[in-house]
């Protein structure tokens, strides 16, 4: 009897600490998603946004709402990198360089 209560207490304790940890990573997920959206917008500002970046951010948001913060952060980071790549891709071509196969 005593042991059962103890065990229950332990499980409850374990669960609460997980929840506390989880609460902390919800904030982290929100931050990651915000950063991703900022990167996406920056790419869009130079007409360099990629097709799936917005979708990945939405997925991250849905995953976050379901409580899977680690996966949400992973998705958000992926979207953020896409935003960066799209921005750099556009910026590296700010000055038009005509391909060499066209002769003038």
């Amino acid at each position: 009897m005593k042991l059962a209560i103890k065990l229950l207490l332990i499980v409850v304790l374990g669960f609460t600490s997980t929840v506390i940890l989880a609460a902390a990573s919800d904030k982290a997920a929100q931050d990651a998603i915000a950063a991703a959206d900022q990167a996406r917008k920056k790419a869009a500002s130079v007409k360099g946004e990629w097709r799936d970046t917005g979708k990945i951010i939405k997925q991250a948001e849905q995953t976050r709402k379901k409580g899977d913060f680690d996966k949400a952060i992973k998705l958000a980071n992926k979207a953020e990198r896409q935003g960066k790549y799209g921005y750099e891709q556009a910026m590296s071509q700010q000055t038009l360089k005509m391909p060499s196969y066209l002769k003038y």
Partner: peptide, 16 residues
Amino acid sequence: FTRRGQLNFSCATCHI
């Protein structure tokens, strides 16, 4: 002539 998207193609890559 600008490459775009994750696959990094311009219109010219395919159509010229």
